[in-house]
Amino acid sequence: MKNVLEVKIERAGYHDEKNTITNIQFDVGEGELVGLIGANGAGKSTTIKAILDMLDIDGTILFKQTSGKRYAYIPEQPTFYEELTLWEHLAFAATVCELHETEWKKDAKKLLEDFRMEHVIHHLPSSFSKGMQQKLMIIIAFLIKPKVYIVDEPFLGLDPKSTKQFLRYIDQEKKRGAGILMSTHVLDTAEKICDYLLLIADGHIKATGNIEQIRKEAGLPNGSLLDCFEELVEW
């Protein structure tokens, strides 16, 4: 399995030295879903921001992509232009990522239908609920079809149907060969879908591996991810 993302962070953080992360090293392979698990303030979002070049960083971040779109980012807090409609956001993303017009329009239509957003395509996202705004972020990411997805708390505000649809698309993208880095608090879902887990606490990696390896490390052969997390991470 080829890597699509290689992260070697010696130190990254804000200027005030708070929320600093150290020695975070991991890879995301083709078709692999890596889960970033940790308590509030553990350093998950800081890690993501460091990967996205939004922070000062000592270390290297390598997107193993020679050309084209490097990544799609689904942020925890939906972000959009209040003055652009849903469709205009999609059109802008498609133009910036140089997608073929007929293709992206077809894909966009399918995504809008699957996430039940086709009735609000000409509406301004500021009038949407939190869940609908989150769906906008998800639709843009899946429309771009990059090699790497960086997803921060995707389930916040999503209704059960959309959550299921999101997981279906994630699975589809894995099969296409995309690598996914996903930060989440929803441990029972993470346990089921993640191929590899990174447990972060106080800005360091506490444990890594698939669920079996994590269980072994925690000494809980039949424990859930939540049990293992409780065992491995000091509160």
Binding site: H122, L124, S126, S127
Partner: peptide, 14 residues
């Protein structure tokens, strides 16, 4: 508030 301005009157159909 949510009930405000769902669509813009300028370029109404995007």
């Amino acid at each position: 508030v949510m009930r405000k301005k769902k669509r813009s009157w300028l370029f109404r159909n995007s």
